[in-house]
Design a protein around this nucleic acid. Structure first.
Length: 294
DNA sequence: ATCCTATCCTGGCTGC
DNA sequence: TGCAGCCAGGATAGGA
């Protein structure tokens, strides 16, 4: 599903079609996509505005608008599971699941399709309302091994749900959380305050390298949903180590990949490479083994 | 403080 | 072939 690498790809590929263009009109086929703003109000807010900048924050596509060279609010998009932005000629055939479209001043349209209707396009004059509570960008300069080690130590949460928490770290979703934990050789059920400094550094480096490589491959496509704005699938699914590979051999040790549910999310990992956290029972077993050995 | 559940949605899958 | 029922998944709200 669209996570940081996919959203980064989307922003990068729609940007050249939008920056400098002006919105002429809006077409809204599913009101709730606007997050509560009435379609008329939405159209009034964006019509005549010019796209000044198109960028990404966490999993949000952020479009800065201006009028007369002055800031005039933001269009903020979230793809959730099945949302898709793309730019087409106005006469191009429309997708069955088109929810919102913005006509541009060059005969093209920015379209938002979304099968499951969870995606949103907000118009706001206060972008902090939407973006203010987010944690640091994993590829930004605030995200350092030292910061991560300290933040992990100060909480007592399971690693997997913590990595999915956008107020902790912004941009990881189910795929890249699983991939990062495997690369760092950390079990998804480890408690954050049990992670030592070298392990935190491993996790930091794993997150960065996984995301960087996934961006290079234009994200991951393993079902019918995510496609780039140009309609092509991403390529990172070819490099998955654990996600969607239940039962297949681990790329490191060749033992079968396991799948469990953590925090209501399917979680893929290698039992051999990512050692389970010690429980009371496993501590006792370990002691017993040691006694037998000696 | 943290976890758990329900909610929002629908296409696609499983099982009968 | 048809159909019911379940599932995935990001984010959030409310309750434990």
């Amino acid at each position: 599903m669209p996570e940081l690498p996919e959203v980064d790809t989307v922003a990068r590929l729609i940007r050249p079609h939008l920056v400098g263009r002006r919105v002429v009109a809006a077409r809204v086929s599913w009101k709730r996509t606007l997050g509560g703003l009435a379609p008329k109000e939405f159209e009034r807010s964006v019509a005549g505005a010019k796209f000044a900048r198109v960028w990404r924050r966490a999993k949000f596509v952020v479009m800065d608008l201006e009028r007369d060279s002055k800031p005039a609010g933001w269009l903020v998009g979230h793809l959730r599971m099945t949302g898709r932005f793309h730019v087409e000629h106005a006469d191009a055939v429309r997708d069955d699941y088109e929810r919102v479209a913005l006509a541009l001043d060059n005969g093209r349209e920015l379209r938002f399709d979304d099968v499951r209707k969870f995606g949103r396009i907000w118009f706001t004059r206060d972008s902090e309302r939407l973006l203010g509570e987010l944690g640091p960008e994993p590829l930004g300069s605030d995200f350092t091994p030292q910061w991560l080690a300290g933040e992990l130590r100060s909480r007592r949460r399971l690693l997997k749900p913590l990595l999915l928490d956008q107020t902790f770290l912004a941009g990881l979703g189910n795929i890249y959380a699983d991939e990062s934990l495997h690369r760092a050789k950390l079990h998804p059920l480890r408690r954050s305050d049990s992670v030592n400094a070298p392990e935190a550094t491993r996790l930091h480096d794993a997150i960065r390298s996984v995301l960087t490589r996934a961006i290079e491959r234009d994200g991951s496509s393993f079902d019918a949903f995510y496609r780039t704005p140009e309609g092509r699938p991403g390529g990172y699914q070819d490099e998955f180590a654990v996600y969607d590979r239940t039962g297949e051999p681990c790329v490191v040790c060749e033992r079968p990949i396991s799948k469990i549910v953590v925090g209501q999310r399917g979680t893929h990992f290698c039992k051999s490479c990512q050692r389970a956290p010690l429980t009371g029972a496993s501590r006792a077993k370990r002691r017993a083994r040691r006694r037998t050995a000696s």
